[in-house]
Measured scan of single mutants.
Amino acid sequence: KKKYVIKVYFEDTGKEVEIEAESKEEALEAAKRLAEELGLKIKKVEIYP
């Protein structure tokens, strides 16, 4: 089964997080949740198959 690796870059902090997920949708949801939890804004998202 294919996994996606999503790199999320946050504004202000210069922080980046990698998330593995089964689908792009799932990964983007996780990225949004994470940003909310951390109180950060997402600057850029890169998706690698």
Rank of each mutant, 00 (worst) to 15 (best):
P49W: 04
K32Q: 13
G14T: 11
K41L: 12
K41S: 14
L28Y: 13
G39L: 02
G14S: 15
L40I: 10
L28E: 11
Y9T: 09
K43P: 01
E18C: 07
P49D: 14
A35S: 11
K2H: 14
S23D: 09
E46G: 02
K1E: 11
A21W: 02
K1Y: 02
D12Y: 10
E22A: 09
I19Y: 14
E37S: 10
I47L: 12
E37M: 05
K43V: 06
V8N: 00
K15C: 01
A30K: 09
G39M: 04
D12M: 13
R33L: 05
E36A: 13
L40S: 08
K24P: 05
K15M: 05
E46S: 09
A31S: 06
Y9N: 03
Y4F: 10
G14L: 08
E29P: 02
E22M: 03
I19H: 01
L28V: 14
V17T: 07
K2A: 11
L28S: 07
A21T: 13
E26Q: 07
I47M: 15
E16P: 07
I42M: 03
E25T: 06
K41P: 12
E16A: 12
V5A: 09
F10V: 01
Y48M: 09
L38S: 08
R33N: 09
L38I: 13
K43R: 14
D12F: 11
Y48R: 08
S23M: 02
E25L: 06
A27I: 06
Y4A: 03
V5Q: 10
V17K: 04
Y48H: 14
L40K: 06
R33C: 04
I42A: 01
E22G: 11
E20C: 06
L28G: 08
E36M: 11
K32T: 14
A35G: 09
A27G: 15
I42L: 05
E26F: 11
E36D: 11
K24F: 11
L34P: 00
E25R: 04
A35R: 01
A35M: 05
L34E: 02
P49C: 04
R33T: 06
D12I: 15
F10R: 00
K24H: 14
G14F: 15
E25Q: 05
I47N: 03
V5F: 09
K2E: 15
I6Y: 15
V5H: 11
E25I: 07
L34K: 11
E11D: 14
E37K: 11
P49S: 04
E37C: 15
I42K: 00
V17H: 11
F10A: 01
G39W: 01
E20S: 06
I47Y: 15
K24T: 15
P49V: 05
I19M: 14
S23R: 03
T13V: 10
I6S: 02
L38Y: 08
V5W: 14
E11I: 10
E37D: 12
F10S: 01
L28D: 07
K1G: 14
L34M: 14
E37I: 06
E20D: 10
K15L: 07
A31M: 10
G39P: 00
L34S: 03
I6A: 08
L40Y: 11
E26K: 05
L40D: 08
A27D: 00
K43Q: 12
K44S: 13
I47G: 05
E26P: 01
Y4Q: 11
P49F: 06
E16W: 12
K32W: 03
E16S: 12
L34Y: 13
I47C: 03
P49I: 12
